[in-house]
Design a protein around this nucleic acid. Structure first.
Length: 664
RNA sequence: GGGUCCAUAGUUCAGCUUGGAUAGAAUGGCUGCCUGCGGAGCAGCUGGUCGAGGGUUCGAGUCCCUCUGGACCCGCCA
């Protein structure tokens, strides 16, 4: 902890002073001042005491400062507080000793490549479920928000020493899948897209699904077919199931390509069909019935059903229909129960694929024996090569986080209630809800969607074809970034440019999807999203490239041995410009930023921090000579500061899944 | 009908958890800054009755109430 040392010290001297004044239990807050001239940390205690003592805040503040605080501060060793002042408004403003804080910050960062990633998790196991898109369509930008938020949170948790398992739930047995199957089997819609450039996931979602939904209106026999298909999906070894498996895996592979392209990763694919075949629900049902969590209705509206009565909702929720079949929330309960260990893991696993980061992606299977894996499952992925049927330990976890669209909040609350009644550990099941993505009116108009006069955004709808798929946005970003990179680096080969462009596209997309408040609806505008300037991922990368160039040009340091303690203070002493102090303070706050982001599951905090750090550095770069500085010692001190900023920036980028570039 | 959430520069958004000093970014528009460390940058100007009204408070963008406008949720569908 670096900046925290300063804060802790203020806490100490405040406590000490208040105790001596006879206000031992007086509360107060240590806040970040709104302006730089008000110091580095400010305390509001005089306002709070003023109320009690009926005196003016300034009077109290100056008494505390003069009579108590100054003495108390003198005794601190080492002293991080440089000065303290009672402001006429009533605040007590503390200023940090930049040399002491700078010294300890430089030392900490230079000795720890993982600077900032404090051990918050202590090995605690966390399951993060994200993506979970029906395998009948291409991912649109709304899905991408789920993917990127989930992936970033998983990264943050992993970097802070949580044991993380990332799940992707594949709903391969619902109505939407049946639609696609009906289209191919009975509606004469070809199984292969007309154009070889059309991705299969997009083909299914944008053409097949839309077409078959149109056909239902004119040909009601297709609806009958769909009913039969739905039933057939529940037969383990049926031909419909096998066909369904082939189609959904084909779509899934295309979806995963998009997710992997954005540097998301998973540990396990959980297939809904396997969950159903496992009969786990029967166990869960027995437990719920035995505990009285769900009740059988013998009269009233829901006669013949098993229902759950919420403590907070007025309407009771049907869990088992009067015909004995379970409603869809049953599988959510089952899945949640599995995640938190209420029921035993029934699955076997096989390696579905290798991923971009070198890790294996596993998938569930309900087969006990390698040989029984169907040729279809096998052929779909050549990576399998017999490595099937391992027992793995994906479940249970100390905490299960699920990324969900906030339109499902109500349902998830009920689910949470049910889990809490089965499991004594609280907050173990944690739905993390985010606002859906809507399209700006401009973007909607570009898609040919007519919008009402007073509306300035449009909800996406797969059925109506109102979507912006992730691949198209990425491709557009890639093209634009490549063009710009080429203008700046005319000598680079096409491959080099493509590589850079891809990293810029990924970073622009990822940054854009996490920078907004997680719980708020996000308006997506295709033009805005293509921006590579300002508050964006590429801006961070640009700053990193600048830092790299400076280090590259710096040569050998004339300063003392960099591992010594004296070196740190020597360097901090040379960094006596105001903006250098500001940069050191920023760097020293990174640990607190990470802690904040993890505790609130809020990646936006990291993005805002990186932007601020990069901005201050870019101002520094404009104002102060670094490599050009004539005094060798000052020059080398500045290069040391540059190195420290670079490490901090890189670590923030690691958390966000943005690649630091050397050139762009 | 019941419930959840939102409203802050032309636009997109921070700030609200925990009330405090002159409400911040980005973008757009206008204007400067490269023979110099990377101009995907920096500096300046422009731009706000914090939806409206009331209340609590020494003090409200922030807390409470009412109203207006908007989004979403509430099935023996998934």
């Amino acid at each position: 902890m670096t900046f925290q040392r300063f804060k802790d010290q203020i806490d100490d001297v405040m406590r000490d002073s208040l105790r001596k004044m006879g206000h031992k239990d007086q509360e107060y807050e240590l806040l970040e001042p709104s302006k730089k001239e008000f110091g580095d940390i400010t305390c509001n205690v005089a306002f709070l005491l003023g109320k009690k003592l009926n005196k003016s805040p300034y009077e109290i503040a100056s008494t505390i400062v003069k009579n108590y605080l100054k003495d108390s501060i003198q005794k601190q060793q080492p002293r991080y507080i440089a000065s303290v002042e009672a402001h006429p408004v009533g605040y007590i403003n503390f200023t940090v000793d930049c040399i002491r804080l700078g010294g300890i910050t430089l030392k900490t960062v230079l000795h720890d490549k993982n600077y900032g990633f404090v051990d918050i998790g202590k090995g605690k196991k966390v399951i993060v479920e994200h993506t979970s898109v029906n395998p009948n369509k291409a991912l649109h930008v709304g899905h991408m928000r789920n993917v990127i938020l989930g992936d970033t949170i998983a990264r943050l948790l992993k970097l802070t020493n949580h044991s993380v398992v990332v799940l992707n739930y594949v709903d391969d047995s619902g109505l939407q899948i049946a639609d696609i199957l009906v289209a191919f089997l009975y509606a004469k819609i070809p199984e292969e897209p007309q154009s070889e450039f059309m991705k299969f996931d997009k083909y299914c979602g944008n053409e097949v699904y839309v077409k078959v939904n149109g056909l239902y209106k004119s040909d009601s026999s297709l609806l009958e077919r769909r009913k039969l298909v739905l039933q057939a999906l529940e037969i383990i070894d049926g031909s419909i199931s096998a066909f369904a498996s082939r189609i959904t895996l084909k779509v899934l592979r295309e979806q995963l390509k998009t997710c992997w392209r954005l540097r998301a990763r998973y540990d396990l694919l959980n297939f809904e069909s396997h969950l159903l075949f496992s009969r786990l629900w029967d166990q869960v049902f027995q437990m719920l019935a035995a505990k009285g969590t769900i009740e059988y209705r013998t009269s009233g509206k829901n006669i013949g059903c098993w229902v759950f009565t919420s403590d907070v909702e007025s309407n009771e929720k049907v869990i088992v229909r009067s015909d004995g079949t379970a409603t869809y929330i049953a599988k959510d309960i089952t899945y949640a129960a599995l995640k938190v260990g209420i029921v035993q893991d029934p699955f076997r696993y096989y390696i579905f694929s290798n991923q971009w980061d070198g890790t294996n992606l596993w998938a569930t299977t309900i087969r006990e024996d390698v040989a029984k894996i169907t040729p279809i499952e096998r052929s779909v992925d050549s990576y399998i090569n017999g490595n099937i049927s391992s027992r793995r330990h994906f479940y249970p976890a100390d905490m299960a986080i699920t990324l969900i669209d906030n339109r499902q909040d109500r349902l998830q609350r009920i689910l949470g209630e049910i889990i809490n009644k089965m499991e004594y550990r609280v907050h173990i099941y944690f739905p993390l809800s985010y606002g859906p993505v809507t399209l700006s009116s401009q973007t909607a108009t570009q898609l040919g969607v007519s919008i009402e006069e007073n509306k300035n955004s449009v909800s996406m709808s797969g059925r109506k074809g109102i979507t912006v798929d992730a691949d198209s946005v990425l491709n557009a970003l890639h093209r634009k970034a490549k063009q710009e990179a080429k203008e700046r680096n005319p000598t680079f080969s096409d491959d080099e440019l493509a590589e850079i462009a891809e990293e810029l596209a990924i970073s622009a997309m990822r940054y854009n999807l996490i920078k907004y408040d997680i719980e708020k609806i996000m308006k997506f505008d295709i033009e805005d999203s293509l921006s590579l300037n300002g508050d964006s991922g590429p801006y961070i990368q640009y700053t990193h490239a600048r830092l790299s160039r400076l280090i590259e040009k710096s040569g050998r340091s004339v300063l003392a041995d960099q591992s010594s303690n004296d070196f740190m203070l020597e360097v901090a002493d040379l960094l006596n410009q105001e903006i250098e102090c500001g940069l050191l303070i920023q760097v020293s706050q990174f640990e607190n930023i990470v802690r904040n982001a993890v505790e609130n599951f809020d990646p936006k905090i990291i993005a805002r921090y990186l932007h601020r750090l990069a901005t201050i550095f870019n101002v520094y770069y404009e104002k102060i000579p670094i490599v050009k500085e004539q005094d060798r010692r000052i020059r080398d001190a500045r290069i040391t500061l540059v190195r420290v900023i670079k490490i901090t920036l890189i670590n923030g980028m690691r958390a966000l899944g943005i690649t630091p570039l050397e050139r762009m």
